[in-house]
Design a protein around this nucleic acid. Structure first.
Length: 466
RNA sequence: UCCGGUGUGGCGCAACGGUAGCGCACUCGACUGUUAAUCGAGUUGUUAGAGGUUCGAAUCCUCUCACCGGAGCCA
């Protein structure tokens, strides 16, 4: 049996053993002194939202130090006995026999107070914000979601696939890439006036991945069902509460799935995750429901219980055209749906998640399967009320000639994608997949307004401090 | 990138073109079990930066920077 380091607060709160000897280690959230000769400390160790109350009285050898040096932010190790609390706020507390101060925190300088801070301010101290209730709760929920994403796919026999972060292939249409190079930027080797990438580390121009989809397809065409879950990068100058330059994406890719199967999986997936987080992060989710978004638990419950609406793109356009709403962007067949349109459909018309599918061919990437009408492709977007698009997916084009033709239409060079085309040349099969922005999921589930507050270290234009 | 808004003690905010103030935090004191403890006293400011208008600018004007919200791009 491994050595016991300490007792986690989460375990102590569920304890049944009165008078047990315990060691609590963590950071002081508040100290309440009573001149009768004792102090109450609230210790949080991140194992759960709640802290644990420690009573320190004057018989403690280190009481002088406790009273004078222990402030909010200090880290301590408390040895003592678990006893039923006389106070109202908690069932248990620790009566300390020894308190060791690991590290104090200057009360006049420590930036976190016992009161609520603005998220803007907390972003400026991203190295200390995980010590707040909200960020702690976000990270525990984020962790649970991450865990249950693996559970969902593993239970269904999907293989977890690690696709490369550095890549030479640009998943066309997915956005601008960050360039990866070891060339001396002040003295670039030239060839006919252009940068000579043959002298670069990989002998060609490379960048950070914008999607693992194409690589996912390679493995789906051998192992059937795979999923990726890893960091993704977009060098877009996006400044919104829903965009990051570095974010995590989940991308399942399934052989023998058509678009309907793809939509079924996406719907089951979202419902599974939302149900799981409500069951396994009760305390944190109640916190969000109380402090961040008072409707979030109801919203999640409704989504778990409802059936997602599924409509053709053409029908969506029709609905919008005859809606009588005055949109900033006018609607006509062939246009991209704008945020206002998506929100109208999911919030006003259906009041639940909506899957729109069969989009016009011109506005979607080359790899999506062309329908018989030759005008639309088997693409689908899952739209959530308030958040908008959370999942985008499609059935992939599995016909070599059609795929090559579409690439040429979009002015792409099929030679560069020879390996991708080989998948259609040798043992091609119908297959589908989708992508889910992980932070957007965390954002939706917690009710947090800004995506920068649901990732430990947000990367956005001009921001990479921490 | 575009549109709009904001920038004042450590934090959250107030102040008609006329002496920069409040709450919290912090420091000291009071209190025999506190829960955002409570009560009393006290400390804290180049009003984002540069220029301009004015007898006088936190306040009006110009530019720069930063942040927030919305839009575009998307996940």
């Amino acid at each position: 049996m491994p050595k016991k380091i300490r007792d986690k607060v989460k375990d102590l709160l569920n304890s049944k053993e009165e008078n047990a000897s315990v060691i609590v280690k963590g950071w002081v959230r508040t100290k309440r002194d009573s001149k009768g000769g004792f102090s109450f400390l609230e210790i949080n160790d991140g194992s759960c939202l709640a802290g644990f109350q420690v009573v320190a009285d004057h018989t403690l050898p280190s009481y002088q130090a406790v009273a004078s040096q222990l402030h909010t932010g200090s880290c301590v190790a408390v040895t003592g006995k678990l006893v039923a609390s006389q106070g109202k706020g908690q069932q248990w507390e620790v009566h300390s026999s020894e308190i060791e101060l690991y590290g104090s925190a200057d009360a006049e300088k420590y930036p976190l107070q016992k009161k609520r801070h603005s998220f803007e301010f907390l972003r400026e101290i991203a190295h200390l914000r995980p010590r707040t209730n909200t960020l702690g709760a976000v990270m525990r929920v984020r962790n649970r979601l991450s865990h249950s994403i693996h559970n969902f796919f593993q239970d269904r026999g999907f293989l977890y696939l690690n696709t490369p972060v550095i890549t030479a292939s640009d998943c066309e249409g997915a956005g601008e890439m960050f360039q990866v190079t070891t060339l001396d930027m002040d003295r670039l080797p030239l060839n006919n006036g252009k940068t000579d990438y043959s002298q670069d580390f990989f002998g060609k121009r490379t960048g950070l991945t914008v999607s693992g989809q194409l690589e996912g397809e390679i493995y789906a065409m051998a192992l059937s069902d795979v999923y990726t879950f890893g960091p993704t990068f977009r060098a877009e100058n996006s400044n919104t509460s829903r965009h990051l330059a570095e974010f995590w994406m989940v991308e399942p890719e399934m052989a023998f799935y058509d678009l309907d199967d793809d939509m079924d999986l996406a719907e089951q997936f979202l419902k599974f995750l939302m149900k799981d987080v409500m069951e396994n992060c009760q305390q944190d989710m109640e916190f969000f429901n109380q402090r961040i978004d008072k409707t979030i638990l109801q919203t999640l419950t409704d989504i778990v219980e409802c059936e997602f609406e599924r409509i053709h793109y053409s029908d969506a356009i029709h609905l919008l055209e005859k809606s009588g709403e005055s949109f900033v962007y006018s609607v006509e067949w062939g246009c991209n749906l704008q945020s206002e349109h998506e929100r109208y459909l999911s919030e006003k018309v259906f009041k639940k998640p909506v899957i729109i599918y069969n989009y016009p061919e011109e506005i979607k990437p080359f790899y999506m399967k062309l329908n018989e009408d030759k005008e639309t492709v088997r693409a689908m977007d899952v739209l959530l009320p308030k958040l908008g698009e959370i999942i985008g997916g499609s059935q992939r084009e599995d016909d070599l000639d059609k795929l090559t033709a579409r690439m040429k239409e979009k002015e792409m060079d099929p030679e560069e994608y020879w390996w991708y085309l080989d998948l259609r040349r040798y043992g091609s099969a119908p297959h589908s997949g989708f992508g889910l922005g992980f932070e957007r999921l965390v954002q939706f589930v917690t009710g947090m307004e800004n995506i920068r507050d649901v990732i430990p270290f947000p990367r956005t234009p001009k921001h990479a401090e921490f």
